[in-house]
Design a protein around this nucleic acid. Structure first.
Length: 426
RNA sequence: GCGGGUAUAGCUCAGCUGGUUAGAGCGCCAGAUUGUGGCUCUGGAGGCCGUGGGUUCGAAACCCACUACCCGCCCCA
């Protein structure tokens, strides 16, 4: 049996209704907040991610699906990669299409996307190799922290609309590139004297990304970590002020948050504001549902003009898991047929097809039964498919052009002509 | 890349320390007389017990290898 590749999966019809629900809420939110959709390719030149996301990140180091495109044998193959995230692609598109060219000062380009991303990592709960993300980016020459608060306000509305309420907003400022660099040097100097006392993982982190030691769960390390300087107290004046304003904007909106000075993000491009929204229950070890932050300078890294950027992405796979069951059940019911047509005999069946066409043209969801089965079995099938009504068409009905419309939940039935049925569903 | 767990019917799972015809619930099919579903009752179909090897008189069970899936670590969009 041929089955799905590791880390990929089929999203079956029973689950699709939930995805549609989330997508509908998202696009409505984006509409209200002035975001327009963009669709970028799922493959890009590898260079886009190695430059944009960063050579030192784990994504680029070991988690990308990279291939060589051998379209022409007389040329060296080009390295292409299945996109591991979409921010770099959106910024690439922003530059490529010169979206900034007609901007007036302070004008913003607000874009959102939805689609599959790929990461070559070992799958676990809520983490797949092909995963789906919805994300948005605000690009322009303004880094006003009010922009950040507004985006989070939108996410807040969004999660509320989906009845996902048991969440926590975590925020931090990682400073600009210079302060972050200086801080990293200082952090390593602070760790070094006690390096022997840290665990093996932390030795690795010390060598690659010292900020990560803050995530260590090892008891012995925790005590040492609590004495290390945090990036918050090392921020330059401008970043400190930016962060204070950001918090003030959240406060003004009544949005609660927790400052996590040790929270760092895995991508190299983040500057200043970083945030996550985590689910407090129900998702196991992979409980981050939204992650985002500011990335001033990414455009320049990709060869574009000086640009400020702020954005986020959330994982649809996890969001679907976090949806409450009540939400799930009502969505599934909405996908059921409105009318299941039960026809008895060849003549009636032929006529039923014409009736079905009329009803469908009138906008009604109709299911035809093509098999010859007894009415008893046909009604049982209608019931199993959660049809709300059965329309019974036999010899008598075919002759009289009046059909038996049965409400399957109530058990009531009435004899109606086709126009009357259509009027009933209008 | 590392660690742990699991693999038996379409699905969810039992199967005690090896013992001969491998079970349950749900689902599926048929019936409880004529053109009226759900509930109930009766009957039925359906399984190289993940794959390969080994131990044994005998293996779904024990051992080894492989594969797949799940959970976690690393890392995290």
């Amino acid at each position: 049996m041929i089955q799905t590749i590791r880390g990929t999966r089929d999203i079956l019809p029973e689950e699709i209704a939930l995805w549609h629900r989330i997508e509908a809420v998202a696009s409505e939110g984006f509409r209200r907040y002035g975001f327009r959709e963009i669709r970028t390719p799922i493959i890009e030149k590898t260079e886009l991610f190695s430059r944009g996301v960063g050579e030192s990140s784990d994504i680029v180091n070991k988690e990308m699906y990279t291939f060589t495109d051998r379209a022409r044998e007389d040329r060296a193959g080009e390295s292409i990669t299945l996109r591991p995230e979409c921010t770099a692609s959106v910024v690439r598109s922003y530059i490529q299409h010169r979206m900034y060219a007609d901007h007036s000062p302070g004008e913003l380009t607000k874009l959102y996307y939805i689609g599959p991303m790929f990461r070559r990592e070992r799958p676990q709960a809520g983490r797949y190799r092909q995963f789906f993300q919805v994300g948005a980016e605000v690009l322009g020459d303004s880094d006003d922290p009010a922009i950040e608060a507004e985006v989070i306000e939108m996410l807040d509305w969004f999660l509320g609309e989906l009845k996902i309420t048991d969440t926590t907003l975590l925020i931090n400022s990682v400073g600009d590139a210079t302060t972050r660099g200086d801080y990293l040097v200082g952090l390593r100097e602070a760790i070094e004297p006690d390096l022997e006392s840290y665990c093996e993982d932390c030795h690795h982190r010390y060598a690659t990304n010292a900020l990560r030691v803050f995530d260590c769960k090892n008891e012995a390390c925790r005590a040492l970590i609590s004495r290390l300087p945090t990036i918050t107290e090392s921020l330059d004046e401008a970043s400190r002020e930016h962060f204070a304003q950001f918090r003030a904007h959240l406060d003004a909106r009544g949005i609660g948050y927790t400052v996590r000075p040790e929270m760092v993000r895995g991508l190299d491009y983040y500057t200043r504001t970083a945030f996550e929204i985590v689910a407090n229950s129900g998702l196991g070890a992979q409980n981050t549902i939204v992650g985002g932050g500011r990335y001033d300078g990414l455009s320049e890294t990709l060869g574009g003009p000086p640009t400020k950027g702020f954005g986020f992405a959330f994982g649809l796979d996890r969001l679907v898991m976090a949806l409450p069951e009540s939400e799930a059940a009502s969505r599934r019911a909405a996908a059921a047929p409105e009318i299941f047509i039960v026809s008895l005999g060849d003549e009636a069946r032929a006529h039923a097809a014409l009736v079905a066409r009329e009803l469908r043209r009138a906008g009604i969801a109709v299911l035809l039964d093509f098999s010859e089965r007894k009415m008893k079995k046909a009604l049982a099938l209608a019931d199993k498919l959660h049809a709300r009504h059965a329309l019974i068409i036999g010899e008598n009905e075919t002759a009289s052009r009046r059909y038996g419309l049965k409400n399957l939940a109530e058990g009531t039935q009435e004899s109606l002509a086709i126009d009357e049925i259509i009027a009933k569903f209008a």
